[in-house]
Simulated scan of single mutants.
Amino acid sequence: MSPNYETTPGSRRGKWHSLFVLSLITGTLLHVAPQAWAQSPAAKPSPDVIVFTNGDQLTGTLERATGDSFVFKSDVVGEITVTADKIKELHTAGKFVALRNGEEVTRTSKKPATITYQDSVIALSDDTSSSTVETVPVKDLAALIDDATYTKEVSGNPGIFQDWTGGVTGGVTLVESTNTGETFTAALNLIRLVPSVSFLPPRTRDTIDVLETYGKLTQPTVPQTNPPTPDSVAKTNIFHADAEHDKYFTPRLYGLVGLSYDHNFAQGLNLQQIYGAGIGYTVIKTPVQEFDVKADIHYERQNFVPPTTSNDLIGSSFSELYHRNLPHKILFTESGTFIPAWNDPSIYSAIFEAGLLLPTYKRFSLNLDLQDNYLSNPAFGYKNNSFQFVTGVTYTLK
């Protein structure tokens, strides 16, 4: 027997009431949703406009200004640099911060404002009242920085893992014959500048460098003896790592703290540690080349293979660093460091390094690098010099 469901008049009224409410909600949604979907997206801001002294106009986006040079990007002509004497008027929709010549750039936030340029004067206006809050003659202008760049590069503070640039290098050599051998090379070179843009004075700089060369050569005894003589094995293991933090007092003068570690089987050096602080100065700085000199005072610990005794030293590092951008985006780098010990003048060391980075494909480059390490007091039976010529493929991180 089928179950008997009893339907009362009250239950039917509840059912029809629910259906009425549901249809009312559905109808409302169907009426409102198309109107919401049909709403047009937010209007794009009007383009920036340059009016030249000859009457021509160009629309696009003002990116920045340095001195009397304005960098403007247009869909028609791309990115161009226009000097102020060729501009009659300039109107922008973006917000900018104007820095005057000689003005100290600090992390104290300045309020970005809308700008106009006319009669060799930049006027910054408050959006809320459209009144002029500041005027800067172009002859007094050091830099004009957009809101996003100013927030990131000046008032912001990047995290420890942000804004690093540099490259990773790797190389390998394999030998399979009567002798068997392999050599592996790996390098990591990182640098971080704050701010990261060249048109602002530097605030801090961090560098990290790591180089590892490992090799093993296996030589069998020929002719073999009876009983067999074990194969002879020669190993190479050279490791260097350093890190430095620079704090700028002026655009060229900076203080520094740094450390370095060296391990070199070729000199009987198990581990050399250096911890120091000093001062540096940028002698040359142009878009093409840069030349720095540095000096520090440090504690140095040398640990050698037995029976050579270890040393605790107080010394200094005198360094020079140079890099130059060559044609075809080739980069040349060179550095030299002399490290005397003050508590034992007979102990000193020196490092010289030079390299070329040759672009090959997109972010990949061919790296040619030579390094010569000299140690006046190597372990007993080891040579003073350790020379390396390293080739590899470098991937640029940013």
Rank of each mutant, 00 (worst) to 15 (best):
H240Y: 13
E320N: 02
A36L: 13
V105S: 01
E63R: 10
T53M: 07
S316Q: 03
D127S: 11
D56K: 12
V138R: 03
V121M: 15
V133D: 05
D262I: 13
G278I: 04
T337F: 01
Q224V: 12
G336S: 05
R13Q: 14
S335I: 00
V257P: 01
G215T: 01
V97R: 01
A123C: 02
V293A: 12
Y5D: 09
I347L: 09
K398F: 14
P201F: 05
V97H: 00
F304L: 05
V51S: 15
P228T: 07
G381Y: 08
A266L: 12
E244D: 06
K110T: 01
S125Y: 14
P378F: 09
G171P: 07
A295M: 11
L253T: 08
A93K: 04
N270H: 03
D296S: 15
L188S: 08
N311E: 10
Y117C: 06
T7Y: 07
Y261W: 08
T173W: 10
L326R: 01
S376Q: 08
G268L: 12
T360L: 14
P220G: 02
D296K: 09
P359Q: 07
N226Y: 15
V168M: 11
I160G: 13
I330R: 02
T151W: 00
P228Q: 03
N264A: 11
L271G: 09
L24E: 02
Y254P: 15
F249T: 05
T391E: 02
S2N: 15
L358M: 08
L313R: 03
F52A: 11
N226V: 14
T26Y: 02
L269H: 05
T8K: 10
R252D: 12
